[in-house]
Structures are given as C-alpha cells and as structure tokens.
Design a protein around this nucleic acid. Structure first.
Lengths: 235, 235
DNA sequence: CCTAGCCGTTCTGTATACAGTTCTGGGGTG
DNA sequence: CACCCCAGAACTGTATACAGAACGGCTAGG
C-alpha cells in the first residue's frame, strides 16, 4: 500500500510527478553521498540526466533547498550542502526543541484516545530494517520513526515543521550508521512505549534524553567537535 | 534602510526580484483580507495583474503555500486558506513548542556573550508601531519581535523553523488587532528583559505563558472555540 | 614567475507556447 | 422540478527560447 507521499504530488503518474521524481532521485543521491560535498548541481545537467525539462528541476531544487540538502544563491548553481559543526549543532538544537514537544503532544493525543498505529508501524518497519542491515534503509526508517511521533500528535502543522528537518535527520543517520543501531532501536522502542502510555512528561523527557545523548557520539562519528560556546575557546 | 529580506532574493532589482515582489504583494493582500477566504488565485490572473509571466507567480505561490497562506492541489488553482479552530490550535501548539525553546536558547546565547541588539531594535520598532496605531504595522512588528527572539539564538535553522510560521503569526495578529496591544507590548518588554538577563528558565517560562495566555483571547476575538479534545464533545 | 584585467562560455531568470485536465454552464431526461 | 451528462472554457503542468549575469581561462604587464 503506497503511503501518501505527503507532498503536493503523490507518486502516481500525472501532475507534479516529474518534479517529485527529480526531487526523490537527487535527494537519495545526496544522502548516499554520490555527489562530493559542494558539488554543483546545474539545472541543465540534471534535466539532461533525468530527461525532463528545467522547470521540474527548478521546483525540485527549491524543495531540496528548504530540506537543507542544497544551497543556492541567485544566479549561481545550487551546490550540495557542506556540513560543519555549527550546522550540526543547530540541527540538534532544533531537534531538542521540536521533538520533545512533539512527544509531549503525542502522549497527550494518545491519552485522549488517539491512535498509535502509525507509531507501531514505524517501529516495526524500523526493526525490520535493522535486521536487513541496509544502512540506507535503516536511516530512512529511523528518521520515519521520529516522524511517526509527530504524526501521532495529529497536528499537520507540527508535522510540516518536522518534515522540514526530517531530511537532514535521515542524512545524519546514514552518515552515522556506524553507531550502534541496536541500541538506537531499543531507545525507539522505549520511546514508543512511553508515548503509548500517555504520560506526557515521561515521553518528553525520554525524547529529550534520546536526542541529547546522541549528540556527542554523532559528532564523534563525523569527526567533528560540538561547538560548545560555553567553554571559551582559546583560539 | 532596507532590511535584508532574508529570502534568497533581496529587495534590490535583479535576480528573483519578480517572484519576491509577487510574493510580498499577494501576501500582504491576503493578510489584509483583500481576498475573500477561499478565493481562487489563478496564476494567469495574478501574472496579468502584476505584469509578470507565470513563472515568478508559480514560485511565489510555492512560498505562499509553505507559509500557510494558500492551499494548492495538483491541477487546481491555489486558493486562499480558510482558518478553522483546529488549524489555529495547531498553530498555538507549534508556537508553544518552538518559541519557549527558542527563548531558552536565546537566553543562553546572551549569557554566553551574544548580542541583544536585534531584540532591542525589534522591541523599539514594535513600540513605535503601537503608537502609530496602524493595525497592519503593529501586527508586522509584533511578529517581527517574536522572530527577533529566535534571531538572538544565532541559529539559522531555528530561524528557518520560525519563519515557516511567522507569516501565520502575522496574519493572526492582524486579525486579532482588536485585542489590547498595549498589554501585548508590555509582555514583549518583559520577555526581552528576561532573555537579556540570560536566565534560561525564566525566559522559557515567560514565553510559554505569553503564548498560552493569548490562546483563549485569540479564539474569542475570532469567534472560534478552542478545540480541546480533552472534553469529549457531544456531537 | 606571478598578478590583474578582459573576453568567451556557461548558467540562471524570465517569457512564451502547447497539451492535458478540471471546472462550469446548458440542455436533456426521468 | 431535480438530476445527470456533455461540451466549451479556463487553468495548470511542462517544454522550448532568449536575455543577462557569473565563472573560468587567456593574455598582457610587472
């Protein structure tokens, strides 16, 4: 069963299908690291590769920019985004704000009779991916689980906010797939249970901890150092 | 002193200027309520009115959709968004998650030596707008103040998250300009002081209270009832 | 050998054109 | 009188075309 691709155009052939296909293709290639960091993504080249005109490519590039995969300046080619410690810290900061709050609302929604099927399905899919050992799939499903938490809140707007960073999260998970995926899955399992229990504070706290405890290992795996402006650096 | 319009294209003539102009124009018209709710925004009609081709109009409509001003389905004209109690509640939910967190990071940034000039400037501009009595200006400056809190964090990503809902906030402020703007300004003043003091918890708590205490009056001013799913409705 | 300025190439920004789909109004029928 | 069907109109999705700006290499000068 094809899950709705949320974005304006579903996967079916027809309206917006081309832009969507371009978006999906380039997005996966970037996540997989097929393009070197900072690679230029000329509209014409992409349109030639995927055999569409430049119009759908333009629309895809706009979405890729809002998703943080490329950076584009006026009159200049879009380039694959390069990540530094600061951007990564910002991502964790936003996650630390958004996801715990979402978990809180999710628990509240469950306590009020909301469904947890999305959460359970995402957890199951995540478990299967771990067993498969496919790093890309694991990253995709893991990011999808975090999205499912927000889905459980039932808020479209919160979901939109989450989607805005979900791509970055998936990218991150793929790049840090050397980390212990088993433990990560157990964390997710606990998290889902907490939300399903309906306890807002536990769900919120656990989500916050899950994210913050992942910050240091992620930086380590990427060979970066957290930009803790707290300690005055002696540069 | 033209403040940088943040988005890819600055206000200056040149690249992206047309799309930006279309975006700004239509956006203001929607906020001011020039279009009836649900009005259809045909690409061709807009392009004719503003004397540009459909291409910049398309790009503007995409941005207007992400900002929540219009809703568009494939092969159908974009329509001005109609707001209901649920969407409004979702907006307040997201604000209650995002803005307190932002205030916390803002206070932290200040405590670590970050600048508060953006905050102070926004506060001053807000005060001036209140004195002017121009409802649109008040709404604009008030929304800008909330953005300034996020600016103070120094996080581009957090700022992007805030911008995604900033338009909705401005729309809301304009529609509820019957509320006591003096009190709102005093709230903002307190908020700025709390952030400037560098106390994370106070800044966070005050922001949360400011938002939540505004929820009920906003609904009342719009003639809606909060969608408190807590109480089982007898429909 | 290195640096600065100029020119060609490449690419984006925008306009125009066409095909397919959706909406709307009128006419016909139960 | 109400409902359904159909044809024309309107609109979006996509392709192609052209103008102007940015980038890269080449040449000239120190």
């Amino acid at each position: 069963m094809a899950e709705p691709t949320d974005i304006s155009t579903t996967g079916r052939t027809g309206a917006g299908a081309l832009a969507h296909r371009v978006y999906t293709t380039v997005r996966e290639q970037i996540i997989r690291g097929q393009y070197p960091d900072g690679a230029r993504l000329g509209e014409e080249r992409i349109s030639a590769e995927l055999e569409v005109s430049r119009i759908p490519v333009r629309e895809a590039l706009v979405r890729l920019e809002t998703d943080g995969f490329v950076i584009s300046a006026p009159r200049r080619s879009a380039v694959v985004r390069t990540w530094d410690a600061r951007s990564l810290d910002e991502l964790f900061d936003v996650r630390a704000v958004l996801e715990p709050g979402a978990a809180r609302y999710a628990a509240r929604a469950v306590a009020r009779g909301g469904s947890t099927v999305a959460l359970e399905r995402a957890l199951t899919a995540s478990r299967d991916s771990v067993r498969s050992g496919d790093a890309y799939l694991i990253a995709e499903r893991s990011a999808a689980f975090h999205e499912a938490i927000v889905t459980t809140t039932g808020s479209d707007l919160l979901m939109a906010q989450m989607r805005a960073i979900s791509g970055r999260i998936q990218w991150l998970f793929f790049r840090t797939s050397t980390l212990d995926v088993e433990t990560a899955f157990e964390d997710h399992s606990e998290l889902a249970a907490a939300i399903a229990s309906g306890d807002e504070r536990v769900a919120e706290a656990l989500t916050f901890a899950h994210i913050e405890l992942d910050r240091a290992p992620t930086f380590a795996a990427l060979g970066l150092r957290p930009n803790l402006a707290a300690e005055p650096s002696e540069d």
